[in-house]
Structure formats: structure tokens, C-alpha cells
Design a protein around this nucleic acid. Structure first.
Length: 468
RNA sequence: UGUCCGAUGGUGUAAUUGGCAACACGUCUGAUUCUGGAUCAGAAGAGUUCAGGUUCGAAACCUGAUCGGACAACCA
């Protein structure tokens, strides 16, 4: 039972020190005066045995005295270490008289300046587990070779014996997961902290709009095994899309606006049309969407020279404005200087109000729109997760790693959305901007000035991105 | 030239511990849809790295090989 507290190995420094004394008195540990270089040189290699330290034969009394003086702060950093006396010829490098205590005259974030000697990982981990009466101590595969040492300490100390079990760590394709590497990103300000929505951390995923349910479901699907794996990041995206698709309210929005003037719609007229908030969940209700003579549509939803399979707006073509009317494009207005399309003139069919035609004619495309005079301007952060080109574990720390970061991973966009969004932009709320993707209202933003973070794009744009 | 660990469709994970290799994602096909998303229906895709052995029966147990990973911080 973890109760509601945190556990720190530093809470056990006194006991761990006592354990070290037990080993010394049993003749299973000794103070070694060799330098770091000498210790490294005499350790041998995986295929060659090491050499025994000349200090290996110190008496118990001398070891007790020296270790006591180490604790008392009588020696400078690096001058002496305490080593377990095991076997310098062991095929397992970790059993070759591993260092268990070293001198570091440095303040500890929890124990202050109480200690100037600190135990190594291998002499703190198992001991802490034992003190906490951990039954199964779960860690990742790279600690497999440490287990014999873990067990050796427990056995020699004759203390409660937890069982260390290793399993494969989670690797996501194209994604940096190493905390050490992610720390580099944070420290060097490549991202805005651990909870940056681009980060593959839990707090980062949260700000990006990942729900707890979607992450749990993902964990359930990928399972736990001892085999090295790289999970396709698309599977994670699938899990969040599946969950958000059920929960996120649909909203029309326009990221990159193109103005459309409905020439046969009266200038001072507006009306409200009914729109469904979530086609999969009727309990989420409907909303009113204001319509008027001037609207914005997404620039991508118009093409001047459209190929045959393009169903959206093009000169002379008719499309449906979602929840509104059928419109036909009659005229394309361009900027004479740049030849860029700046405005479209369209006419609507008043009989198609609500989105269907009494004569039964069909339109193949349905596009989104926002009324210019009613539109809410919002800030949208288009985050992409930080992808690397290669298997993240093959990347070295430092320069190579940084080069592989996507420089366009954050774009800030001013977008136009229905008024509905403004009233519902509560921190943590999730929306689907249809055709564009899923978005989460940033937990740090205010209702007056909501900021939307991209969670994931819709599936088709995702696959296009991955292919490119 | 050591020790430890692993290997099952494209990917990941299972297989009641020796009894018809299953599930999910992905892919493809069809249906449907107020967008091409989503949804629904269906299909293809591995005979379990290889070679032996034990057994009525092996993905599982044994032997050997191959390939891959981990281990030589006073890091965790």
C-alpha cells in the first residue's frame, strides 16, 4: 500500500550505512584507496577477469575505522570508496568487487549536509525494497545483470528478500523516451518543460489532451513482456482517437480562412442553424450555429483547378455547407498583384436549408464554415510530437539527437471558430475540429483567452504526415 | 573466444503451462454516412529463427546453431 506518500531511498541512509557496516564486519566489504582510473583498469573486461585490489586484505578493524572516518568527512571526494568483496574473476562485471559507497561532499536535496558519503544504486535499491517489504520489484531489462548482485546483498545481509523482475521497457517508434535525453530537451529549452504537449511524458500527454482512459487502454493492448519491442506510435494515436471520438464535441473551425460571400443572401440577415455536438452520443445535444452573408471556409476546401476526384468547392461546383445550405461557386476574386485567391462569390439554394435538397439531388462534398461577423478568434497551438527519424535508442546524446528533432513541431495559429466554442472553452475540454483534428483546451489557459492544443490529427492527415 | 536475456503474421501481445496458433493495430474489399473521418461487414496475412531430440502429441521441454539485446560510471 503506497498510501498517499512518496518514498525516498534517502529516508534509509542510516539503515543502509548500517548494512555496509554489517558487510565490513563479515569481511565482505573493504575500503579501497585506488583511484577511479585504477579501479577501472583492474576491473578487466567482459571476457577477461579483473585484478584484485591491494586493499582487499585490509583487516576488519581497519575497514571499520576508515569507513567511520569516511562518514565523518575526513577524506576528500574520490580518495576512497567502500567496495563489496566478491569475485574479481566473475563473468558478471557487476560482481567484480562493486563500489557500494563513495565520498561526495555535496548537499542532498532531502538530507542536506548530513552525509558526505552516499550509497551507489546497487547498494540502495534492493535494500530500500527490502526495508519497504516489497514483494516484487519490477524494473526494466537492462537491470537483469544486476540481479545476482541484488540477491547477493540481500543474502549476505540476511534481510527480507524481495524478488526483482525485469521486463521490456516501452519504446515508441520515432519517439524519444529516454528520460536522460528528454532532460536535455528541457534543460536546453527545446521544449517548454516536462509538460510541453510535444513531450511523451504523462503530463505532456495530458496537456495535449490524452485521456487517462486512452493511455490505460494503450497499456493494456501493448502488454508486458521480456522481449525488446518498438511499439508503433500509430497504435497510441489510434487509442486516443478512439476515445476522443466518443467524447469530444464536434465544432466547426477554420484555420486558414478564405472569405466567401453569399451574393443572394441579404446583407443584414442572420439565422441560427441546428448542429449536432456528437453524432455518436445524442446526449451531448445540439447547438445553434449562426449563419450570415459572409463566411469563412478553409482555404484547402477550395481549388481553382480541381481534379476529378476533388469533391470540395471549385468554380461552378456545388457543395454543402455543413448544417446550412448548398452553395455554388460563381466567381473567384483574386488579388491583381499576387494572383492569389482572396474571395469567392457564391449563391445558395434556399430550399436546401438544413443540408438536404427537396429535389433529391446530391452533392458529394460537405465543407465547414464560420460566419465572419460571429466568428470567435482563438489561438490554436499545432503541436506535433517530437519525432526522430531513426530508432530513438540508436541516437547518441548531444548533437545528433538534436538534429533529429522536428523544427516545425510547434506552430501557433489564429483560427476562427463558432461562438459555441468560446462559451465551452473550459480547461481540459476536448473538441474535434472536424477535418482537422482533436484539440484540448490548455490547462493553463483562461476562459477569456482559451488556448487550444492539438492532440492528434485525423487519421488520413496522420498517415500522410508519416509517409512524408 | 565471457556471462545473462530474448526470438510467434507488417507491428505488438496471447495460447488454460505439452493438446485445433488467438486477439488488437495496420493492410485490402464492400456497405453506409451531412466530407474522404467515424461506423458496420468481410478478406488476406504466421505454422511459431534454423537443425536435431524427447513425446501419441512441442510455439512451449532437451541439445546445438543463427540472429538480436544487455553488461567493462566513484550514473540510475
Amino acid at each position: 500500500d503506497w498510501e498517499d506518500r512518496l518514498f525516498f531511498a534517502s529516508d534509509y541512509f542510516e539503515q543502509i550505512y548500517g548494512y555496509a557496516m554489517i558487510l565490513i564486519r563479515k569481511g565482505k566489504a573493504y575500503v579501497c584507496d585506488m583511484t577511479a582510473e585504477e579501479i577501472s583498469e583492474t576491473r578487466g573486461t567482459p571476457t577477461r577477469p579483473g585484478k584484485e585490489s591491494p586493499f582487499r586484505s585490509r583487516s576488519v578493524e581497519e575497514n571499520v575505522e576508515l569507513f567511520t572516518r569516511m562518514r565523518a568527512g575526513e577524506f576528500p571526494d574520490g580518495s576512497r570508496v567502500l567496495r563489496a568483496l566478491i569475485d574479481m574473476a566473475s563473468p558478471n562485471m557487476h560482481m567484480r568487487d562493486p563500489i557500494i559507497y563513495r565520498i561526495i561532499h555535496s548537499e542532498h536535496h532531502r538530507t542536506g549536509d548530513k552525509w558526505c558519503i552516499y550509497p551507489m544504486y546497487d547498494f540502495a535499491h534492493g535494500q530500500s525494497d527490502s526495508l519497504e517489504k516489497i514483494t516484487h520489484s519490477i524494473c526494466t531489462l537492462e537491470f537483469e545483470v544486476h540481479r545476482p548482485l541484488y540477491d547477493w546483498f540481500i543474502r549476505e545481509l540476511e534481510i527480507y528478500s524481495p524478488q526483482q523482475i525485469e521486463f521490456a521497457r516501452l519504446n515508441l517508434s520515432y519517439t524519444v523516451m529516454s528520460k536522460r535525453k528528454l532532460l536535455e530537451l528541457v534543460k536546453n529549452n527545446y521544449v517548454n518543460g516536462w509538460d510541453d504537449p510535444r513531450m511523451p511524458t504523462i503530463c505532456g500527454l495530458r496537456r495535449a489532451g490524452y485521456t487517462p482512459e486512452s493511455i490505460r487502454n494503450f497499456a493494456e493492448i501493448i502488454g508486458v513482456a521480456r522481449r525488446d519491442n518498438i511499439i508503433d506510435v500509430a497504435l497510441l494515436e489510434h487509442c486516443i482517437r478512439e476515445d476522443l471520438n466518443k467524447k469530444a464535441a464536434r465544432v466547426m473551425s477554420v484555420m486558414n480562412p478564405l472569405k466567401v460571400i453569399i451574393t443572394n443572401y441579404p446583407e443584414d440577415q442572420t439565422e441560427e442553424l441546428d448542429a449536432i455536438n456528437n453524432p455518436e452520443d445524442a446526449s451531448m445535444g445540439t447547438r445553434k450555429v449562426p449563419f450570415s452573408r459572409e463566411i469563412y471556409i478553409e482555404r484547402d476546401d477550395f481549388m481553382e483547378d480541381a481534379p476529378k476526384k476533388y469533391y470540395r468547392l471549385a468554380p461552378g461546383k456545388e457543395v454543402r455547407l455543413r448544417y446550412a445550405y448548398y452553395i455554388t461557386c460563381n466567381e473567384v476574386i483574386k488579388d491583381p498583384a499576387t494572383n492569389e485567391v482572396i474571395e469567392l462569390h457564391c449563391t445558395l439554394d434556399p430550399l436546401t436549408k438544413g443540408g438536404s435538397s427537396p429535389d433529391g439531388r446530391k452533392v458529394q462534398g460537405t465543407i465547414h464554415w464560420v460566419s465572419v461577423q460571429h466568428a470567435k478568434q482563438i489561438q490554436v497551438n499545432l503541436y506535433e510530437r517530437l519525432f526522430t527519424k531513426e530508432n530513438p535508442d540508436d541516437l547518441a546524446e548531444g548533437e545528433d539527437f538534436k538534429i533529429n528533432l522536428n523544427p516545425n513541431s510547434l506552430k501557433v495559429v489564429k483560427a476562427f471558430a463558432e461562438p459555441y466554442l468560446g462559451m465551452n472553452a473550459v480547461s481540459g475540454n476536448k473538441f474535434q475540429f472536424e477535418r482537422i483534428g482533436y484539440f484540448c483546451v490548455d490547462y493553463n489557459s483562461t476562459p477569456e483567452n482559451p488556448i487550444f492544443n492539438r492532440t492528434v490529427t485525423l487519421k488520413d492527415s496522420w498517415s500522410k504526415m508519416m509517409k512524408s
